[in-house]
């Protein structure tokens, strides 16, 4: 409860400080919205040149695009400061003050930045889920929809955990931004049906970085419901928990290597 109260205080401060520069917030939101619309148009132009891709219609692929974008948007909204940790803060020794407070450093890093630009991605995701959702025929019931919601949340946690893992490498190597950029790209690959990839990549996205498990399987479940949806939900939760724990553990080890800059 204490952490929730603290989180809300931090988040409120972050939003207030960002809103001082309203024009910047608007430019940021438009920039992200613009970027996502461009990749959506690209996807449309590509997919519309053939009747379907491995049996998926353009609306079904659009729906999957929306699911991934929603997970990416939630992560972007809540954990954006990890980018500056990976790129600059460790290298410039700007994190000293976080170590002096009686709160976990990771909590402070995450709570101190609410990135309003993420609404560019979230707005488009909502639009895609609505428009494409109305144009596809789902077989699954309310349980399938809940599974999709759970999948989005798990995927957001997985993306954030992966960012935590890679950002923590900066404590040892001083800078891990480019590597973070590289692994962050994996979240984009789940915008397309897993089936277009070779088996090795499919397995990578299911068992190693379980984004495919949490986004693609609930998506598939909407059209051809699995026999045991509870089992799928438990698998998603366990995979997310395991992945997040491993990433959290690596952060807790790496943070010990933080060195302040000398004078």
């Amino acid at each position: 409860m204490r952490y929730l109260r603290l989180y809300l205080t931090y988040a409120k401060l972050s939003v207030m400080s960002k809103l001082v520069y309203k024009a910047n917030v608007i430019i940021g939101i438009i920039a992200f919205l613009f970027g996502e619309v461009a990749s959506l148009v690209t996807l449309y132009l590509l997919v519309s040149s053939v009747p379907s891709i491995d049996g998926y219609s353009i609306y079904e692929i659009g729906f999957l695009f929306g699911l991934t974008n929603m997970a990416v948007g939630i992560d972007h909204l809540l954990t954006d400061r990890l980018w500056t940790v990976a790129y600059f803060e460790v290298k410039l020794g700007k994190m000293d003050h976080l170590f002096l407070r009686p709160l976990p450093v990771l909590f402070q890093v995450i709570a101190s930045e609410v990135q309003l630009e993420a609404f560019g991605e979230i707005i488009l995701a909502v639009a895609m889920l609505t428009v494409c959702g109305l144009n596809v025929s789902f077989i699954g019931g309310i349980g399938s929809i809940l599974l999709v919601v759970l999948g989005i949340l798990c995927a957001a946690v997985i993306i954030s955990s992966f960012k935590i893992l890679v950002a923590s490498l900066a404590f040892k190597f001083k800078r891990s931004g480019p590597l973070l950029q590289f692994v962050y790209g994996f979240s984009g690959y789940t915008k397309y049906p897993l089936k277009i990839y070779p088996k090795i990549i499919q397995n990578l996205l299911i068992f190693v970085i379980p984004l495919g498990l949490c986004l693609f399987f609930p998506f598939e479940n909407l059209f051809s419901p699995v026999e045991h949806p509870i089992l799928l939900a438990v698998s998603m939760l366990l995979a997310t928990l395991f992945f997040a724990s491993v990433c959290g553990f690596i952060w807790s080890r790496m943070i010990r290597k933080y060195e302040s800059t000398g004078t």
Binding site: N24, I27, G28, A31, F32, A38
Partner: peptide, 14 residues
Amino acid sequence: HTDHLFGLNMMRNT
């Protein structure tokens, strides 16, 4: 006129 280089650069890259 605006110091939000990140947003401007993002639009340019898109």
